[in-house]
Design a protein around this nucleic acid. Structure first.
Length: 917
RNA sequence: GGUCGAUUAGCUCAGUUGGUUUAGAGCGUUGCAUUGACAUUGCAGAGGUCACUGGUUCGAGCCCAGUAUCGACCA
């Protein structure tokens, strides 16, 4: 019965019209805001995206998962709190600010630190945090009132306090280290910020004259001839016979004519190159280690921006790569270049600037990692922090073993970040939260010196961004200022992040949690509640393109997240992301790459499937709203369908609960998809759909009630369509919204009913198959007869509703869904009927056409043979004494049931074949 | 080189302490359907000796060993 044209609901669901409306409604109702109360909290802190960032596929995956978890917790009645925020991303942001200043004709070197920071904050206000708005497009239900930023004053102070406290605990120290130096950004990089790739290079064979001879040379092989002026040793293998006679002597470095000692060490591989190695302690980490071992001099010939300095003597002022060409030229001229060979080697480049990383000795601040790493490993191995999937522990363990842990270099030669709270006077360092305190310390140490503030020099460097974000679960609740909120929300519940930052971030947060929670919250608190920053960590995979490359901005292989959201709606994209995302496994996102342009297209079949799912749900509601409700009593079919639907709903709810409990999120979504589309729309709605558009009130109510429970179940995954349909199902009171509805509890349900109903469904499918094969029109009515048996009596007999295990409505269901003019029990095979198995009994479908009996017999025979083979297998098993003796009781019972069923089916088939013979 | 992981349908992947009628899904594919919520649709089908070889077990896609191929991370 069509509704009047005027207020007719549109035929297709339009996400664009709906999503914004509901997001604004939720915000207006302040549903996402959390304040401590008497409920149990459920807390997630967002992995703070880079403040310069724009939404990409990884964010969408990661934040969809967080939103699913937090929305589920909210529906469970927990006090759900998802804290959003951004991270100041020192190198990336500073690079952007420098670039912008350059466009305005301002050089960073012309600015004071304060002026530069003013520009940086201005930049942040203008462009920073766009990503947080983009997360709203995705539907993220963050508590926006709690938005934090790692460079805001309170979090800045926390970082400084932590630095000072660690220094006092003797965990921070300053040391000379071989570091990865980015000559372009002029900063130290952590190992993780260096990307190694194989590149083509040359291996130069250069001869060094042995001191005290005229024509004896040792030839070394090097990739970096421009560093020979910094050579302070030449190493050979102690057992290499070629060089035995030179042990203890010296060679002369070409071009600079400096004598250097020949040392012997097993480190040298006699097979590589010429078996002789020049040792340049200032410019190679391995050489530095050798130099320390043998007390070699350290000569640094490079400036911070990668040019040769005066110690080089030759080529002073040249860039290191220009210098390489120049030095090769000079070596050629002097005859010392013996050979040049092609060589493929791993070159490290800065993740941010792509400059070739230069090993460089610098004075840096380090955090000792030995104790912290052991604690962090213990936290996961003891199960206090649980990883999902659990095999991620292997990677974690591998990184945190003592052999692999290295102290954390926390200084960065930048301005954008928390400035290291260390003040220097001569060779001494004073670490304090403020300059005044540092001065007081200095004055106390040197009362005679009459020290003033201007006598102290603060460290020029800032702290690594991770040195802010490792405090995130503590600092976002202002743990260093006031612990009231921390006491409620700590430890947080779940953390969702990519495994690629397991070490940068996850491990370090665990360290910080165990290091500081007791100081902040007290011993009693942590012993009762735990020291861990979070109880569960869900690791997402990397989002890769169809060629399995990690999606990244630099490769340009990532579809435009905002375009996807526009095309498919947030619900569609969320569905697409989640349906391919098993925990921890990388997901190959299906956005195709245009073969012509090699550019990624902003389309996705999976997201499209999500969009279609929304449309399906939307139209199911349209159907329901189109019915006219009457007060007549429901018929047997309606009652059966409603009872079955309720049982299936309970079964599905149980499965979804279990899957979410195990963080099998994509499976939970798939289960709901199959239930709603398959069971609810295709079976249930088709079964109750009235020919005249009039439906009984009871059935209507049962349908609405089940439908709204489905919407709650699906809400965490697809928040918008579910809220929309939730409101379309009933008139709602103020505040009665799906987002804050109650997660359904599993009630007892009739599993036997589901099983019997499955038989009916299979029968309908089989009838449709026969129609399809024989080109019988789907609407042409046929007759079905089923042989008498206790089972068929219970299901289809006149007294079906009263028999044990039987129920009413089965006949009506078969009749309607199978388009049958009659369903009856029989003792004899009807004429011109096609027999098939109905459970263990025989059913006959009477066709209005002649049947090729011989062909049917052949099919029957084939099925019979298969069943006999199957039965033989089971009987072999059952006659095996060891099986009967060893297998659990349930398994044996099951095998016996299979045996009985197969035997009954075989008997049925044999009977058919006999009768039709 | 070290470590970890993977190999299941044309493609992308599930498969839960080894046991539910000789393996599941989505996409793709094949055939059929069409005024009745939805073509963003419905119905049905085809498609796999679970990489290979051996072992453990009453029983292996799942456990063990080896082989092959691929990948990731670390050096």
């Amino acid at each position: 019965m069509p509704a009047p044209e005027g207020n007719r609901t549109p035929q297709a669901y339009s996400a664009a019209d709906v999503e914004h409306k509901w997001y604004q409604h939720w915000l207006a109702k302040n549903y996402f805001h959390s304040e401590p109360d008497e409920r149990e909290p459920f807390t997630i802190v967002i992995p703070p995206p880079n403040v310069t960032g724009v939404l990409h596929m990884g964010h969408m995956l990661n934040n969809t998962i967080q939103d699913i978890l937090i929305r589920k917790a909210r529906l469970d009645g927990r006090n759900a709190c998802w804290v959003p925020g951004t991270d100041h991303a020192s190198i990336a942001t500073e690079a952007k600010v420098v670039q912008r200043l350059r466009e305005k004709g301002i050089k960073k070197s012309d600015l004071t630190r304060e002026e530069f920071l003013a520009h940086a904050f201005e930049w942040k206000e203008e462009f920073g945090g766009i990503i947080l708005q983009q997360l709203q497009e995705l539907g993220a239900s963050c508590d926006w009132q709690r938005t934090r930023f790692t460079m805001e004053p309170e979090l800045y102070r926390a970082v400084i306090k932590v630095f000072v406290s660690l220094y006092r605990k003797d965990k921070m120290y300053r040391g000379l280290r071989m570091t990865n130096w980015d000559p372009e950004a002029q900063t130290v990089l952590s190992n993780e910020e260096v990307i190694y790739t194989d590149e083509n290079s040359n291996l130069y064979h250069v001869r060094y004259k042995v001191a005290g001879t005229d024509d004896e040379y040792i030839t070394i092989a090097t990739q970096r001839p421009e560093t020979i002026m910094a050579d302070t040793g030449l190493a050979v293998s102690p057992t290499d016979e070629r060089y035995l006679r030179y042990h203890g002597r010296q060679v002369i470095v070409p071009l600079v004519n400096r004598p250097i000692p020949i040392i012997t060490d097993d480190y040298v591989d006699p097979e590589f190159g010429t078996g002789a190695l020049k040792v340049t302690p200032a410019h190679d980490p391995n050489d530095y280690a050798l130099g320390e071992k043998y007390g070699l001099e350290v000569i640094d010939i490079l400036t911070p921006d990668g040019k040769l300095n005066e110690f080089a003597q030759v080529g002073v002022g040249l860039d290191r790569f220009e210098a390489r060409t120049e030095i090769v030229k000079l070596l050629k001229a002097s005859g010392d270049l013996v050979a040049t060979t092609q060589y493929r080697t791993r070159i490290g480049r800065s993740e941010r600037t792509n400059a070739v990383v230069e090993p460089r000795l610098t004075l840096q601040w380090f955090l000792r990692m030995d104790d912290l790493a052991a604690t962090a490993l213990g936290a996961v191995e003891s199960g206090e922090v649980r990883f999902h999937p659990p095999n991620m522990v292997n990677m974690y363990r591998n990184w945190l073993t003592p052999e692999n842990v290295r102290d954390w270099c926390v200084s960065r030669q930048l301005w954008w970040g928390q400035r290291i709270p260390a003040w220097y006077w001569k060779d001494e360092v004073f670490v304090a939260e403020t300059a005044a305190e540092a001065l007081a310390q200095a004055q106390q140490a040197h009362p005679e010196a009459n020290l003033q503030l201007e006598d102290l020099q603060q460290d020029e460097d800032v702290l690594d961004t991770w040195f802010s974000s490792w405090l995130w679960p503590l600092s976002v609740f202002d743990g260093w200022k006031d612990t009231r909120e921390l006491q409620y929300y700590y430890p947080t519940s779940d953390l969702v992040t990519g495994w690629d930052i397991m070490f940068f971030w996850v491990a370090r947060m665990v360290m910080a949690g165990y290091e500081f929670s007791e100081d902040l919250l007290g011993k009693d608190f942590v012993e009762k509640n735990g020291r861990m920053p979070f109880r569960n960590v869900y690791f997402t995979g990397m989002v890769r393109d169809e060629k399995r490359r990690k999606m990244s901005k630099s490769l340009g292989n990532s579809p435009d997240a905002l375009e996807l959201l526009k095309t498919y709606g947030a619900d569609g994209v969320r569905f697409g992301m989640m349906s391919s995302a098993a925990a921890g496994n990388d997901i190959v996102f299906d956005a195709p790459i245009d073969p012509q342009t090699q550019k990624v297209l902003n389309t996705s079949e999976l997201c499209d499937q999500g969009k279609k799912f929304c449309n399906k749900i939307f139209n199911a509601n349209r159907l329901l709203q189109g019915f006219t409700v009457s007060d007549r009593a429901p018929d047997a079919l309606e009652l059966l369908a409603a009872e079955w639907l309720l049982a299936k709903l309970n079964e599905t709810t149980g499965e979804v609960d279990r899957m979410l409990g195990e963080y099998r999120i994509s499976e939970a979504l798939r289960t709901l998809y199959n239930f709603i589309w398959g069971d609810f729309c295709s079976w249930y709605l088709e079964a109750i759909k009235p020919a005249d558009g009039v439906i009984s009130r009871d059935t209507y109510e049962a349908t609405v009630s089940a439908f709204e429970r489905m919407m709650t179940l699906l809400h965490p995954f697809l928040p918008f369509i579910t809220e929309e349909v939730w409101h379309g199902l009933r008139e709602r009171r103020e505040g009665e919204d799906c987002v804050v509805s109650t997660w359904p509890k599993v009630e007892d349900f009739d599993a036997a009913l589901i099983q019997s109903f499955t038989l009916l469904q299979e029968t309908v499918s089989h009838i449709r198959y026969i129609r399809s094969q024989r080109e019988i029109a789907p609407r042409e009515p046929l007759q079905l007869f089923v042989e008498h048996s206790p089972a068929s009596e219970a299901l289809l007999g006149a007294n079906a509703g009263n028999s044990p295990g039987g129920f009413r409505g089965a006949r009506e269901f078969l009749q309607k869904s199978g388009v049958l003019s009659a369903v009856a029990l029989t003792d004899a095979a009807p004429d011109n009927a096609l027999p098939f198995l109905f459970g263990n009994d025989t059913a006959y479908l009477v066709l209005n056409e002649t049947i090729d009996q011989a062909a049917e017999r052949a099919k029957m025979q084939a099925e019979l043979d298969r069943l006999r083979g199957f039965l033989a297998g089971i009987e072999k098993k059952l006659s095996n004494e060891r099986f009967v003796a060893n297998a659990p009781e349930e398994v044996i019972t099951l095998e016996r049931k299979k045996q009985a069923d197969a035997t009954a089916k075989i008997a049925s088939l044999e009977r058919i074949l006999r009768v039709n013979a």
